[in-house]
């Protein structure tokens, strides 16, 4: 069992290359996903705050009252 796992991880002696490639893909894709989620959250919260502040001033500012989605 352990031997089979070790053989799988070794990837015929090229484990560093194969796992390095998968790790690169995972890190880059997850980093972009996380950055995009944070940005949506930040912008939509800021929009909501601004729209609420605009509403208190008597609805002078145009725009929806809630987040865009």
């Amino acid at each position: 069992m352990i031997d089979r796992l070790a053989a799988f991880l070794a990837m015929g002696g090229h484990g560093g290359f194969v796992w390095g490639a998968y790790a690169t893909a995972a890190i880059v894709l997850l980093a972009i996903l996380a950055a995009s989620l944070l940005r949506v959250q930040r912008e939509e919260r800021a929009l909501q705050r601004l729209a609420e502040a605009g509403g208190r001033r008597g609805g002078r500012a145009r725009g929806p009252a809630g987040p865009a989605a």
């Binding site: 995009s36 940005r39 949506v40 930040r42 912008e43 939509e44 800021a46 929009l47 601004l50 729209a51 605009g54 001033r57 002078r60 500012a61 145009r62 725009g63 929806p64 987040p67 865009a68 989605a69």
Partner: peptide, 17 residues
């Protein structure tokens, strides 16, 4: 795209204010 649309609305609201 959602983030970008929100950012543009923020810019428009600020300009209007």
């Amino acid at each position: 795209v959602r983030a970008e649309v929100a950012a543009r609305r923020i810019r428009t609201l600020r300009l209007a204010a």
